[in-house]
């Protein structure tokens, strides 16, 4: 198997079966470092399954995944996190009993050395500073000492992004970050995503075409576990096949 060099993420013939159901069939995906990619598709198209295979939350049935040239197909999730891969979750998997800052701090600390420490961090602690900066990045500094269970849904989604940004990520997978957000919160989200440092690439799964096309350079369309179209946002928008399948009917439902 020859690996194309200089790719952030490369999927070759990735398939995932759940019993008789083929959730993913023969996925080929190549994403450059720093590239911003949107994955679109109707419900059940296999988008989240694709993310789960990439992050190692569950392994693919067949195929290979390379992350920055390294074959990570058999790596557990935390090994991929250590190599700079992050993801956000559709459902909230935050630490609801802890404050915003503590959530981000734990995420920062998880990828650092010396996770098992009985000594309190000082206010000047480098990780604590990083956590503070990340909280500011996602505009949550006002509520940084608030318990997560007291946050609004939109704020929880923003926190989810801050946690994905912890510990020098190289590539992030955003799983429907705009779902359930108000128009104002959507605008903030777009600002956060477009304001990410240039070397951080991402794939975003998004139902909202408006958000997806504004934050991505390339779009991949999925249907029934297969990729059926890839191109620039404008091309995808104008494609008659895509319009018939996605934009025409269920898109804004």
């Amino acid at each position: 198997m020859t690996a194309e060099t200089g790719l952030a993420l490369e999927l070759r013939g990735v398939s995932k079966r759940f019993g008789a159901l083929a959730a993913l069939s023969d996925i080929e995906l190549r994403v450059r470092p720093g590239e911003r990619r949107a994955v679109l598709g109707s419900n059940g198209a296999g988008k989240t399954t694709l993310f789960n295979c990439i992050t190692g939350d569950f392994p693919p049935s067949s195929g290979a995944i390379r992350f920055f040239g390294e074959d990570v197909t058999s790596f557990p999730a935390q090994e991929r996190i250590r190599r700079g891969l992050r993801r956000t979750y559709q459902i909230s998997l935050l630490f609801t009993g802890l404050s915003v800052l503590d959530n981000v701090y734990l995420a920062c600390r998880g990828v650092s050395r010396g996770r098992f420490s009985f000594r309190r961090p000082r206010a000047s602690d480098a990780l604590m500073q990083t956590a503070e900066e990340l909280v500011t990045t996602v505009h949550l500094q006002e509520v940084r000492n608030t318990r997560v269970s007291d946050l609004s849904y939109g704020q929880q989604r923003q926190l989810e992004i801050a946690m994905a940004l912890s510990g020098a990520p190289r590539f992030i997978l955003f799983d429907e970050p705009a779902a359930g957000l108000s128009p104002t919160e959507r605008r903030e989200l777009i600002a956060i995503l477009t304001g990410l440092p240039g070397h951080v690439g991402y794939i975003i799964i998004e139902h909202d075409m408006d958000v997806a096309l504004r934050v991505s350079e390339r779009v991949t369309m999925m249907h029934n576990g297969r990729i059926f179209k890839e191109g620039k946002p404008a091309e995808i928008e104008d494609d008659p096949e895509v319009q018939a399948l996605y934009l025409g009917g269920a898109a804004h439902g």
Partner: peptide, 10 residues
Amino acid sequence: RAPFGLALQG
């Protein structure tokens, strides 16, 4: 409030 305690709450 130490990393151990925070992680435990996590």
